[in-house]
């Protein structure tokens, strides 16, 4: 009898403990990563909405982000193997450009149908800074890393523009 109670107690404790830890991890991530970035992002949005900076950026972005061809150009530039590792870290650039494009969509300067292709166009450099580390995490041999890094970077030149087209096709009928 006592053993039974002990076992129930222990498993309930285990479940509650896991849930509590999950909640703690969630709040931790929010406080340490999401909210700080949110503060920064909302400041940028405020700046765009309330000052002339917004119109300047809008004119710059609009030409590129309101047509498929323009998005292609952005994407190809971001995917250039020399630039892509520089643009990659922490996805900071992609997030800022995302906010800029998003704000222009919100103001009605860019059509909503461009949202999905834009999500891919601003991000062909994803993870390009991280290839050696990512491969090392997968326990790749040094030779694999040596060839793998240029392989991934080169591949992005091809798959970047393709991803914009895929995004465009998936946005049809939205």
């Amino acid at each position: 009898m006592q053993a039974l109670i002990e076992r129930i107690g222990r498993s309930v404790g285990g479940v509650v403990g896991t849930l509590f830890q999950a909640g703690r991890d969630a709040v931790d991530l929010c406080l340490k990563t999401i909210i700080p970035f949110m503060a920064f992002v909302t400041f940028v949005i405020g700046l765009i909405l309330e000052t002339g900076v917004g119109d300047l950026i809008a004119n710059g972005i609009k030409g590129f982000a309101s047509s498929l061809g323009g998005l292609m150009i952005v994407c190809i530039i971001c995917a250039i193997p020399i630039l892509s590792p520089l643009l990659g870290p922490g996805a900071v650039i992609a997030q800022i450009v995302g906010v800029l494009v998003g704000t222009e969509i919100g103001r009605g300067n860019i059509d909503v149908s461009m949202a999905l292709p834009a999500l891919f166009a601003i991000n062909p450099q994803v993870g390009c800074d991280f290839v050696p580390v990512g491969l090392a995490l997968g326990e790749a041999e040094p030779e694999t890393v040596e060839v793998g890094v240029p392989a991934v970077l080169t591949s992005r030149m091809i798959t970047g523009p393709i991803s914009v087209v895929v995004g465009y096709l998936f946005a049809l009928g939205l």
Binding site: F37, V41, A91, Q95, G98, L100, G102, L119, I122
Partner: peptide, 8 residues
């Protein structure tokens, strides 16, 4: 890195 998506 939520704001790639959330920004748009």
């Amino acid at each position: 890195e939520l704001f790639v998506w959330l920004g748009i």
